[in-house]
Design a protein around this nucleic acid. Structure first.
Length: 605
RNA sequence: GGAGCCGUAGUUCAGCCUGGCCCAGAACGCCGGCCUGUCACGCCGGAGGUCGCGGGUUCGAAUCCCGUCGGCUCCGCCA
């Protein structure tokens, strides 16, 4: 028989009790973290959000009614305790508990609810599949590490609001039911009941609305906002995720970067007590690609890409020579102490490189005072020496090379660099290496689409000096590729955590960029007409940025996946193991929406 | 769309390669009994499994084969 809560109220959280409470009569509420029945005295570790305290039910001191109830208490029962705080008898203190010098002698016990056999223990370190954790997420959240992640997340929300509101930003909500846009990720669609056959789309970001807020004279806007993208999931990608989104009027890149840095600094100081050094480093897109093979380089370690094309073009080795002659590049990595890699390990690296489009991977071991490699015979003594010097190779190192097009060589080496650094465990921990990537190209050629696509999005402004070149760029791909945008990304330890740009604020430039992207006037009008219209009515110059909140917090707490910092995340197939979403709906629901579904009848409920 | 790893009591795993000794075993958890100072309590006893699902091979399948579903990581995709 369960007890009712009635007017029983807690006086303290369990973890709040200290020696100062000794002698106090207190009421506590929480979960039985563990129960130890010694036949006589019964110990219950009572746990709530703030911590654990030991409750003692002693047949010689506690009323019989309380003792009889205590005998029934099992792990994770929900109980209320009224009792007196006392110092633990000498020799029975528990140094592992913050409240380990005190205990509560129970006078009264309420059993408010029972608990079934647990799928896993409520402990800090558990070894259980993530699927089970997600199915019983409420139990998972009772665990301290999960609770702590959600607590940090809460604190980041609060710090964000404090900082941005403190700098004149207004929090404005933008619609969740909005219009599908053709550029970018696949949309999640929501059918309209009132206009059958039409669909809303869930926003991929509040991009257009926040620009329109600038036209509305809001001047400074921010929002902590859910965004939706119907693409395949990853450890750092969920179909619904959260952004810290902001936009400012009458600004240039420096203003947006300054606010972004100020915000990140404030969050780290307030939430983690870490004083980040400002300003953050900057690097151009070109430099990032050529030195690290990626636009989100992890600069916590070296092992940079080294260009050996000048040497490669003269060697007898056809793969190297041809690559350079065809306009490609030959670049390499020097893997410190990599000569110890077995043939199998090197073959594995080659296989890994092939996943990213490499046709092969050349390698040279520097060991026993000589170079050993299947390709070394194609090099003269002098060329071997040049190569070694250029690569800064030392005895015991392994040199690996990719010879391919500019794009492929950099991409492959970028992935190899990261893969090898992980394998060798050379990435320093405990560092916060922020890096701005700037000077992005405005557009890049997309083979599949057969047209130029925006590197950021179609509303990103070209550099002011490139605006006069837009007309020429529309007909001249060479010029188009050379255009730079006013975009910037923020990278932390090799992960993209934010990105933004100065936007186009005049209809003329916006129309030219649409044209450059091969978006017809009709299509532009149909899809983005409301934005172009807005730009015609006195749109101020403006720009902004959005942080990936989930990724930022995952990095802050050292989580491997953003699922660890999201209360109810989806699995890789986009399912919610807790609720069972997505699921079939009734025929009636579909009929109301004017929707028919092409699957077997019996599956529909 | 593709590649890899994984799926056996409530949970985590062993068993699988080399089919029969497995009507599947361990640990933790759970249930019952004993125990008045434990905090990973202890001791004794007990319950608990459609070996993900479907099909095939075989005298015989957790084990071999095919398919399928699900979980994780990655490529593609993610303006």
């Amino acid at each position: 028989m369960l007890d009712h809560l009635g007017d029983f109220k807690r006086d303290y959280f369990c973890g709040e009790l200290t020696e100062n409470n000794i002698g106090d009569e207190v009421r506590l509420l929480g979960w039985a973290d563990s129960v130890r029945d010694h036949g006589g005295v019964i110990f219950i570790n009572l746990r709530d959000r703030e911590g654990i305290v030991q409750v003692v039910v002693d047949p010689s001191k506690s009323p019989e009614e309380a003792y009889e109830k205590a005998k029934k208490v099992r792990t994770e029962y929900v109980i209320g305790v009224q009792g007196r705080v006392q110092r633990r008898p000498a020799g029975t203190e528990n140094p592992k508990l913050p409240t380990g010098t005190i205990e509560v002698i129970a006078d009264k016990l309420l059993i408010l609810n029972t608990c079934d056999v647990l799928p896993f223990q409520i402990e800090d370190n558990i070894n259980v599949s993530e699927e089970v954790r997600l199915k019983y997420r409420y139990l998972d959240i009772r665990r301290k590490p999960m609770f702590n992640n959600l607590l940090i997340r809460h604190e980041v929300y609060q710090a964000t609001r404090e900082y941005l509101a403190g700098h004149g930003f207004l929090e404005v909500e933008t619609p969740m039911l909005t219009k599908s846009t053709p550029e970018g990720a696949r949309d999640f669609l929501v059918p309209s009941r009132l206009e059958k056959g039409k669909f809303y789309a869930l926003p991929q970001s509040p991009q257009l609305f926040k620009q329109i807020l600038m036209v509305g004279g809001i001047e400074r806007y921010f929002q902590i906002v859910k965004c939706f993208r119907d693409e395949d999931l990853r450890a750092d990608r969920q179909p619904e995720f959260t952004q810290i989104d902001f936009e400012m009027s009458f600004v240039n890149e420096e203003d947006v970067i300054a606010i972004s840095e100020g915000l990140v600094h404030y969050i780290f100081k307030k939430v983690l007590g870490i004083d980040l050094k400002l300003p953050f480093r900057r690097m151009t897109y070109k430099e990032a690609i050529e030195r690290y093979g990626t636009d989100k380089p992890d600069i916590r370690y070296g092992m940079e890409l080294i260009d050996v094309s000048e040497i490669a073009k003269n060697v007898e080795f056809k793969v190297f020579k041809d690559a350079v002659e065809k306009g490609g590049v030959v670049k390499g990595l020097t893997i410190k102490e990599g000569a110890k890699f077995s043939r199998k390990e090197i073959d594995d690296l080659t296989e890994y490189a092939k996943k990213f489009g490499a046709k092969g991977m050349a390698w040279i071991k520097l060991s026993e005072g000589k170079m050993s490699s299947p390709i070394v015979k194609f090099f003269t003594q002098e060329q071997q020496q040049q190569l070694k010097e250029k690569m800064k190779g030392e005895e015991g190192d392994l040199l690996v090379f990719i010879a391919d097009t500019y794009e492929t060589t950099h991409k492959v080496l970028g992935f190899l660099r990261k893969h090898i650094a992980d394998k060798l465990n050379i990435i320093p921990q405990g560092k916060w290496d922020f890096l701005w990537i700037v000077d992005f190209p405005l557009v890049e050629w997309d083979d599949e689409e057969g047209r130029f696509v925006a590197l950021h999005h179609p509303f990103t402004s070209p550099k002011e000096e490139d605006i006069p070149k837009l007309d020429e760029a529309i007909t001249n791909p060479q010029v188009a590729s050379s255009l730079k945008s006013r975009a910037y990304d923020l990278v932390l330890n090799g992960e993209e955590i934010g990105g933004g740009s100065i936007r186009i604020h005049t209809p003329f430039v916006q129309e030219k960029v649409f044209k450059l992207l091969g978006i017809s006037d009709e299509e532009a009008k149909e899809k983005f007409g409301f934005l172009i219209d807005a730009l015609k009515f006195g749109a101020p110059p403006h720009g902004g940025l959005a942080f990936g909140l989930d990724r930022l917090i995952a990095l802050m707490v050292g989580a491997d996946s953003i699922r660890e910092v999201i209360a109810f995340p989806k699995t890789q197939k986009g399912n919610c193991p807790l609720s069972g979403a997505p699921d079939f709906v009734t025929k009636e629901q579909l009929e109301e929406l004017g929707i028919s579904v092409e699957i077997e009848e019996e599956k529909l409920s």
